[in-house]
Design a protein around this nucleic acid. Structure first.
Lengths: 366, 366
DNA sequence: CTGTTAGCGCTTTCAT
DNA sequence: ATGAAAGCGCTAACAG
């Protein structure tokens, strides 16, 4: 029986083996649940393992292992400065970190307004036979079909941005939509003069997906819930306008109409990330006495936050969603580390006064 | 001459050796500038190295190396739930992560109100002869003395919480105090009725340190700067009261006096982290129509935020300060990775509506 | 079911 | 000045 390491040294697999009177190989087998170990040995080893709180040396593990993992990411097409772009930034960052774990990533981007696009990429994804999947769930039916197949093949998957409760994902990273609407209402109403009008702007798009629009619906519900909670419904008039994503000039006309008929509009809120469209309009018309509130730190939104056209932006750390989504998969695969099944993002409140030092860790530091 | 790895595989030290017609040992010598290599060999190897853009495998490096680093942390004594406690949480978390790099940490805690305590621990620190130091700079003169010695010994150090500009630290992690006061003012004044009184509460303590009180001073300056910027000085009356940290009952008397003489107080702000003391008082007296704003998510502060006695808390991610402070040192030592010299923390705005999902990454996730 | 053995890529003696 | 060889702690293929 050979020596065990000095007390202050970290305990090694080999030490466990000696204590359990078996060889390193056997210990390795129980650690990785690779089977073929006598029940008693297994029990004994497991006891020692947990008693000594053994943590394998990652360096050695990664050096020795030959396993590699291919992950596939399924996201909407992104353009620089938008929300999905930030999620991808997080994924890229995670990619670098997990490269050491022999994890490779491939990103598939679908057109978020085309179910066919999603479906065909889902098909492609399956053909790639990945070790794990990260996706933004759009088009409920297609998502269910895809995740069903993944479950059958025991391929773990995580959701970002929005969740699909009914399926058994490894994890979900995203915001509580209802609550973020609630927060938006608080900020809106903290200052708004009573008996004024608040305009809720909707943005329609042909073929808009069920799941993602669900987000904005929940935000609006949260917004209204706040009014109700504090019995403010009779102090503010809520009106709505439906814009159309592709019809720039039609929108302007509509907005002009709304403002003409409702000169007492003092607040505007939009539950998706396009508040800059409203800010564009307000700036063009020189309208300045309005509290505009929106979501997400798109570059154009931040521009208007800084110049005062937008009063407040609510953020949900998209980078972190991507980053943690991918690392959760990688850690699950490479180290069998568990993840919290649901992890809600903070509801960050940004005014022009605190936007400058706002950073998302670990992206803007180090 | 043996084979070189297939193209898609990462290039190894061994491959370089083969190409340069030398042994692995020699390549290692030039990589680490360890001398004892013929000039021509050295030149040849260096060329190949840079041509192939060789990056050593970190895992293998860390596995093989025997080097270890001892870091020392110098912080004020902390109690569960307070600000320094959170910084230490961040440090502990970082400790686990860098354990793989053979980095060990020892924490020294001084009494933040005793310069002697700081000085004697600074002495002890030096005797420990650490490879790097993380500290909260209290007592300017003592800090200068300590950092001077560290610089002479070429021991890198980083500051958290507050900065000392004049010395050459590896990095600083903390908030912009002035700006955070500015933000506090914005929030305070967004709703406050005009011509009411705002009470600024100071907390004195015998032997209070120069540097840290500097923080609260700057916050107050930022607060007043906001008033000035928007020409609000004539719309609000600012009054001040000095409490004394150790004199509970004296404070109550003072506050009673202030409230009796100023029944129109509608806002209270405290520039250190003890707003819960005020909330204690307000709750005891049943005063409810006041906007109280404070700093830092101490457990007791959060309690009062949730129950509505405190309107808003401004946070500065202390965990992250500790975490990044320590990892910056570790990465600097183990991999010579550079750090941003100054990294300001976000100014997080917490209301009772968004406190629940607030998390500090990577502490509350995974 | 279990032990043995040969690496993973790099560092570090120890000879030569 | 340089090469050979023995690990670092873990994995995995191969015997038995």
């Amino acid at each position: 029986m050979s020596e065990i390491k000095k007390k202050d040294e970290r305990i090694r697999l080999k030490d466990i083996a000696v204590l359990a009177n078996v060889s390193a190989g056997t210990v390795d087998r129980v650690i990785h649940n690779r089977g073929g170990v006598a029940p008693e040995s297994k029990k004994r080893i497991e006891e020692i393992l947990s008693e000594l709180n053994f943590k394998p040396n990652k360096m050695a593990q990664l050096l020795a292992t030959k396993k590699g993992y291919k992950l596939v990411v399924l996201l909407p097409e992104a353009v620089r400065g938008d929300y999905w772009w930030d999620i991808i930034k997080g994924i890229k960052r995670a990619e670098e970190e997990v490269a050491d774990y022999h994890v490779k990533t491939e990103i598939l981007r679908f057109n978020q307004y085309s179910m066919e696009s999603f479906a065909s990429l889902a098909q492609r994804l399956l053909e790639l036979n990945p070790a794990g999947v990260l996706m933004a769930p759009f088009f409920r039916r297609e998502v269910l079909r895809l995740t069903k197949e993944l479950e059958e093949r025991s391929i773990p998957f995580v959701f970002v941005d929005s969740n699909v409760e009914s399926v058994n994902s490894l994890a979900y990273y995203g915001q509580q939509s209802h609550q973020s609407g609630y927060v938006a209402a608080k900020i809106m109403l903290t200052k708004l003069e009573q008996f004024s009008t608040i305009l809720l702007v909707h943005m329609l798009r042909t073929g808009s997906s069920a799941i993602s629009s669900n987000q904005t619906t929940k935000r609006e519900e949260g917004f209204l819930a706040y009014l109700e909670k504090y019995s403010l419904e009779s102090f503010y008039r809520i009106i709505r306008v439906d814009l159309h994503a592709e019809d720039e000039s039609g929108n302007e006309e509509k907005l002009d109409g709304v403002f003409n008929q409702n000169p007492d509009i003092r607040g505007i809120i939009m539950f998706n990330s396009r508040i800059y469209r409203i800010a564009d309009f307000l700036e063009k018309r020189g309208i300045r006495n309005i509290r505009a509130i929106g979501y997400d730190l798109l570059e154009r939104n931040v521009h208007y936050l800084k110049n005062g056209m937008v009063e407040c932006l609510i953020a949900q750390r998209p980078q972190l969603q991507g980053y943690y989504g991918l690392t959760a998969l990688a850690r699950h695969l490479a180290f069998k580390q568990p993840s919290k099944p649901i992890c809600y993002m903070p509801i960050d409140i940004l005014f022009k006064e605190n936007i400058n030092d706002y950073k998302v860790y670990p992206f803007d530091v180090e």
